[in-house]
Write a protein that binds this DNA or RNA. Sequence first.
DNA 1: ATAATTTGACCACT
DNA 2: AGTGGTCAAATTAT
Length: 361
Amino acid sequence: MFKSKTSQKEPKQQLEAMDETTISLILQACELARDLESNLHNLANQPNLLSNSLDEITKKFDRARERVFGQDPSTSSSLHNMLTLAHQQQIGTSHVQEWLSSSYATQFLADHKEAKIGGCIDDDDAEVKGLQAMDIVSASDTNIAASSSQRPRRRKDQGLISKITVPAPRIGNTEIPPEDGFTWRKYGQKEIMGSRFPRSYYRCTHQKLYDCPAKKQVQRLNNDPLTFEVMYRGEHTCHMSATAPSIPPPSAEHHNATQETMAQTLATTTTADPPTASLWLSMDFNPIRGGGGSSSSMLGGNRGGGDGVGTSTTTRYGKEVDFPVVDLADAMFNSGSSSSNSMDFIFHSAENKWESEDKKN
DNA sequence: ATAATTTGACCACT
DNA sequence: AGTGGTCAAATTAT
């Protein structure tokens, strides 16, 4: 429904924002990333080379970013994270490149710039970069305590897989973390010292059924409530099972944040079925929800544009909230500008809706 | 009835 | 002792 509506309304006007040199820079960086990917195993033993290689890629992206945006580090953080994670988790960077070469990439960049209302400073790059392959390996040693009869509590250090920041949905509820193709069950929330917003703890919905150890933490950034910091721990094993309900993402055995970024990006930039972007689009977004006893009925995998696709609802702490899609779209496109004012309006109107929703309860 | 979320308490870690 | 991660009973949603 609103799927086609939004897609048609989104112009691809940002292409001219990037000249050929910029595109070339990005492609070069992708090329380097691919090289790195193929040599990753060798380079793992040569930290210096690895570091140089990463620097090279980073620089190219930075230059590309500067050419496009002058300077706006926040804008490129997701892109940067994406690439970084692509290396570390051995995601096929050809996917990245493919995506980058599509017009959706430019749209993505434009949208991110636009969506940054408060101007967030992404200080996570260092951390993400700091991740070693060891971290990824150690993450698999999550042996969920199913043994003792006592209350076995997990140790803190489970091996962090990835930590990324993702923008809140531009359309819909900006207060919920974006869909990432997996189904999560919230098991905790905690106020964190120095953070204005609580941190939410999620585990894979299928933890029990499939012994899936995947977890994630979601927290909004202090300085940019419209950005979520998502920390993934553990690896999904549920989609490995033949009967597992989760749809394995393109790079099946390496679930990760990149997908989240990409998924979120695409979800927030366009809901059309773009030729290249469909690569990610097809992998998720359908809000396979473990909702109300019907989760098991989803087991066949209802992907591929089935019935419930394109839904404009999602969960918000257990409640299903109808997004004022039409209103939002109108606000967005009738306001005649893409300024932050219109965005403010959108977010505020959305929040008001949710507030009144809350009052009912 | 079943599943998901909320939330206070418990516990590991520093 | 403080902080953060997890548990689990109670609550809410489906």
